[in-house]
Design a protein around this nucleic acid. Structure first.
Ligand SMILES: [Zn+2]
Ligand SMILES: [Zn+2]
Ligand SMILES: [Zn+2]
Ligand SMILES: [Zn+2]
Lengths: 140, 140
DNA sequence: ATAGACTTTAGAGTAGACTCTAAGGTCAAC
DNA sequence: GTTGACCTTAGAGTCTACTCTAAAGTCTAT
């Protein structure tokens, strides 16, 4: 199949597939007489593999490691794969915590403000962003 | 005070302060004879204001809006501030949901893998990334 | 044979928010 | 009077992962 078909079947764009190739994630073994990239089902599996990794939040660098494990499993150990996953879990958990802290702060900010058409002269959002003093009052 | 002191007191680097100035977020009114930027306490408050906005996840573009509300409150209404905040809340909530989905998938991936020093020939992480089939089995 | 869809390449552009560089000027202290 | 910390500028570089462009060649169907 040509790149357009691979794109459709893998869910990656042709641009992205060429980009991954340039990055060394995908190798293309076959070219047509007219120099078109020709892919087989194994290439489709690889493309899908990469997409699944990306969808789970792995960086291209991490995907590369997974690909190398996949391409020669006996040369790797389970710990190789699990460590990357564990690190990613920590990263995602940390990011979630950070966002939850932010969310709490945003709600606090939002809840105190009337959000109406009145002048912002007394707006508690601006007040809260403007200084460190506790001011847990809500606009009248 | 000069930029180094403002940096220390605001928690932003001198580079960042100059960058914000170039972006139009900060105006510097005073220069010393030797052309050094001279800041006052109002400038410090503005720098802190920006930092607080950034810490709450607002983009520089959003910070600009907050700054303009702050600089002329009567010309704005509470809704101006609250809308930005509400949108940000939605964004953060969406991002958290997305990360939680990813986290669940990562745990599923991780839990099935022994993570040991054995060959990755049967590694369930690679298996799971490699195809769509359900395979909720754990490595022996 | 001609339109329209597809493919090729190298390389530039995008996003957001910094971060750093080079080459020079200024200032306080010893 | 010199060291060393600080300041100035324009502009380039960083990061990640694409995304797009231009100009050319190829394929399929009518
Ligand atoms: Zn109000
Ligand atoms: Zn308000
Ligand atoms: Zn195992
Ligand atoms: Zn395993």
């Amino acid at each position: 199949m040509k790149i357009g078909e691979l794109a459709k079947k893998s869910g990656l764009s042709a641009h992205t597939l060429r980009f991954y190739e340039k990055q060394g994630l995908i190798k293309v073994n076959n070219r047509s007489e007219s120099n078109y990239r020709i892919y087989n089902n194994a290439d489709l599996d690889t493309a899908k593999f990469i997409k699944r990794c990306r969808d789970m939040g792995f960086s291209l660098e991490e995907v590369e490691v997974f690909l190398s494990i996949r391409s020669d499993r006996p040369a790797h150990i389970c710990a190789d794969a699990k460590n990357i996953t564990a690190i990613k879990i920590t990263e995602v958990e940390d990011k979630i915590s950070e966002l939850q802290q932010i969310l709490i702060a945003l709600h606090k900010l939002s809840d105190a403000c009337c959000g109406g058409n009145e002048s912002a002269e007394l707006c508690s959002i601006i007040d809260a962003l403007d200084n460190d003093k506790e001011q847990d009052k809500t606009e009248a």
